[in-house]
Design a binder for these strands. Sequence first.
DNA 1: TAGTTTTGTTATGTCATACATAATACATCA
DNA 2: TGATGTATTATGTATGACATAACAAAACTA
Lengths: 240, 240
Amino acid sequence: MVDNIINNFTTVDNSSLVDKVEANLVELLQNRKLKVGDVIPKEIELVETLGVSRTVIREALARLRTMGLIESKKKKGSVITSPDIFGIMSKSMNPHILDQETLKEIFEIRLVLEIGMADFIFQKITKEDINELKEIVKNEPLSSESHLFNIDHEIKFHGKLYEITGNKTMKTFQRMLLPIFDYVHNSGLLQKQLEQKKFVSHKGLVDILENGSPELFRNAMRNHLENHFARLIMSAENVG
Amino acid sequence: MVDNIINNFTTVDNSSLVDKVEANLVELLQNRKLKVGDVIPKEIELVETLGVSRTVIREALARLRTMGLIESKKKKGSVITSPDIFGIMSKSMNPHILDQETLKEIFEIRLVLEIGMADFIFQKITKEDINELKEIVKNEPLSSESHLFNIDHEIKFHGKLYEITGNKTMKTFQRMLLPIFDYVHNSGLLQKQLEQKKFVSHKGLVDILENGSPELFRNAMRNHLENHFARLIMSAENVG
DNA sequence: TAGTTTTGTTATGTCATACATAATACATCA
DNA sequence: TGATGTATTATGTATGACATAACAAAACTA
């Protein structure tokens, strides 16, 4: 009996005014199918239409702005923008704040991406790309002297691979994840380097890109990243 | 002469007060290496320390809040939270707003992920998972009757694969991308279905999961997604 | 008349103050 | 003691004022 009464109260709307206005505005964007560049109503108009103070309107607009949905210009008002989805994310990508489990998962995603990219790389790669890769590899520090491998160089090589896919979003994604990788490498989150047993070197990967197939490349990349995998698995076992 | 003078003025920082305060706060989070749950200074304290109005402080805090970096409670103040990075992103994941190029790129990322996942799936998959997949496949509509293939069913099957990886972040990522896929499928963004030539069916994938290897699975998945690839490539050619 | 400067208008950015509201700690009373 | 009311505190909302940038129209000069 009492439970029923209580349950009737659980639907109390807990959201703040700003939440509602925000939802309202987002809905406006979605339903009206507004295009990039379209302007949305002025603050004052919204104040009158929605019946709340300018403070509330402004905070709601501020949210859309930080989400990259709109951009505000003096005099002109607020216009819809094509959000840089990962740009927003990158601000919250603070390795110090993300918990370790998430960090590890993000690291996994990187590995997944690089193996899965093979098809697109082969589809898009040009002669110039291969030459550029060769150039990068040429300047590669010897594996013997890089016990803790040269992370800058890693980024350069693998970054180029992302570039070749021609997928800007994916490239942005990688750039965003870089601080994470850096952090994960420097932290104790991964097992310390086993031995540096890269069955397939960067040079080997380039060779395959030149003469091989996506299938070969996937397996080679899998091998190349063997260390990372091994370390991830081990630390997972330590945790679990 | 005049040019020099002018040039001296070009370094005027264009950022608003809020921008500066925001940067200040983010830096605070990063440098002080604050942990989740730590409280940050009260609004009033920040007003006094930084010498700006509460309005500015509040908007900066609002930004951190929408980025999921902090959470504000009455009386208690603002505490640092572990941000749900993809949760934030999903709000700006409005297919109507994202431009077509980005949409296509996101779709590509999906394909890349699913091919690259193979290793993790094999590493984590259990007997129960396989049984569950079999169950899903059993209820599969016949491919003959699903000219435009059953998207709900696709999501169910592929979603389960994401789940098996045990990578919650990746799963979240997928969930976030679903509206995009839905939209891309229903839009004219992809070539209309060629013929439904799936060399490898869902059932075939399950068989491989049970008896095959990651390498086999990757190739099978590549094949399975052949339609998507073909359509992406074609529409890319149309554009380019 | 063409081109430049000035002025005015408009919408966002910032400030200040007051009050509302929720959460907590403290005091009060049965 | 333990439930209940009350004070305090920090965020939430409202309002009014002024600052500033962008743009447009008017005014002015060559």
